[in-house]
């Protein structure tokens, strides 16, 4: 493991009885990255993160967090890590401020309270009400603040924007970028692609306990399928287009318009189209969401 790798997992396996939650996860997160961990519910995202913090013990495999084996020295890992659980629960009878002070006390009062106030103000989180009176979104903010407040070297966030409105989501993205600028590494899980697309530089896609893809977010989008919608001035026979390599007809509303899916480069299609009476041509890069759904669909076909 190099100096620049903050988080490493090799052959990580974990079963709950008959359920095989992780079937050999390999992961490397470089220092200073914002790393997205993408997968549908139940793919093993939460299990991975909880293994990293020694909340659960993997059946086999190696884990290193900031160079430390979490099973050998969990406290050292936990002291350097900010964690937001996927299903955040805080003692409902505590006040927001009381809960934050309690979490801070558990960390030996490391956090600068001025920074905590700054965070709560930015997230518009009231300090006085008891946790039980908070909306889901506000509760989530408590979780975000406690994860960030001690300026950890590594942030492990399980679905950080869950239940937050779009404005707050963007505020969280800003906070994550600021943490990154401060030198922190951010590892966050999500099942919402637009979120990962918005903030992560690299992404790992997990499906059924196995990492199926690790790539730069941008390259993942570039590499994938594109979609082209073409309208023609008059009715045409599109067979020559459909037979091009890498081209599939997605839908044809009538003989004057067609939607195609193009794998790889557009060159062949563009050249073929010169012989057609094109009135309108529109292409769209797929969102990460669609790429992700492609992985997800393969998965369903397997079953």
């Amino acid at each position: 493991m190099s100096e620049e790798t903050v988080l490493m997992a090799q052959g990580l396996k974990k079963s709950y009885g008959k359920v095989r939650a992780l079937r050999g996860v390999d992961l490397e997160v470089p220092r200073g990255a914002i790393f997205g961990y993408l997968g549908p519910n139940g793919a093993g995202k939460t299990t991975t993160i909880r293994c990293l913090l020694d909340l659960i013990r993997p059946d086999s495999g190696t884990v290193r967090v900031l160079g430390i084996d979490p099973q050998a020295d969990p406290v050292a890992v936990q002291a350097r890590t900010g964690y937001l659980p996927g299903e955040l629960q805080v003692d409902p009878n505590m006040m927001v401020e009381g809960a934050l002070r309690y979490f801070n006390a558990l960390r030996g009062n490391k956090a600068d309270w001025g920074f905590v106030r700054q965070l709560t103000e930015r997230l518009d989180l009231p300090l006085k009400p008891p946790i039980k009176n908070l909306s889901h979104g506000n509760k989530q903010k408590v979780g975000v603040v406690q994860a960030l407040m001690h300026r950890p070297k590594l942030l492990l966030l399980d679905e950080p924007t869950l239940g937050l409105d779009p404005l707050m989501q963007h505020e969280i993205y800003r906070l994550l970028r600021e943490a990154q600028a401060d030198g922190a590494t951010v590892f966050f899980s999500s099942h919402i692609m637009s979120e990962v697309e918005a903030v992560a530089e690299r992404v790992a896609i997990i499906r059924k306990g196995v990492i199926v893809e690790v790539a730069e977010t941008a390259s993942l989008i570039n590499r994938a399928l594109r979609r082209a919608r073409i309208r023609f001035k008059q009715a045409v026979d599109i067979t020559p287009l459909a037979s091009l390599p890498g081209v599939t007809v997605l839908s044809q509303d009538d003989s004057t318009s067609v939607t195609l899916q193009v794998e790889g480069e557009m060159d062949a299609l563009m050249k073929a189209l010169t012989t057609f009476p094109v009135s309108d041509f529109e292409t769209e890069r797929p969102s990460l969401e669609e790429i992700f759904l492609a992985y997800y669909e393969d998965d369903q076909k397997e079953e």
Binding site: Q78, P85, L106
Partner: peptide
């Protein structure tokens, strides 16, 4: 209740 998860993620040995 689910509150133990976050508490034990703090630097506090079991």
């Amino acid at each position: 209740k689910g509150t133990l998860d976050l508490i034990l993620a703090h630097p506090l040995s079991r």
